[in-house]
Design a protein around this nucleic acid. Structure first.
Length: 111
DNA sequence: CTGCTGACTGGTA
DNA sequence: GTACCAGCCAGCA
């Protein structure tokens, strides 16, 4: 297992219930800002009971893939308080979890 | 080592 | 808002 994979899994595990993160965010926090695709690949291989991969979503505010279990993903999120309307996450921007908060310029983090 | 794949992303139309 | 395209990267054959 490469360190990248380890870091990704570790990060995803740190996402609190009721919050979500994009593949790109995870990739960036893991050290590779453009490796969102690779992150998805890792998610595909990991198990849901080891990692809350349902909290990792696409940057467009959609659920992204989940094998063929997107329905389950939606259920899990809703159970944690994340409302999903028509495959779009409500208040996606504010629900997005932020890893390693960049110190400077407190608060007000656009993206 | 080379090439293909995909739970992605941002830009452009 | 949606559709298509090119760039991206780790994993696997």
């Amino acid at each position: 297992m490469s360190s990248f994979t380890t870091r990704v899994l570790s990060l995803v595990r740190r996402i609190p219930a009721g919050r979500v993160a994009t593949y790109g965010d995870v990739a960036e926090a893991a050290g590779h800002p453009r490796a969102g695709r690779a992150v998805g690949n890792i998610m595909r291989g990991c198990s849901l009971r080891d990692v809350p991969c349902h909290r990792v979503v696409a940057a467009a505010g959609r659920l992204g893939g989940f094998g063929g279990y997107s329905g389950l993903k939606r259920q899990l999120l809703r159970a944690e308080g994340v409302q999903v309307v028509g495959s779009i996450i409500r208040d996606f921007r504010t629900r997005r979890h932020v890893f390693k908060v960049p110190p400077k310029h407190k608060g007000r983090q656009i993206r």
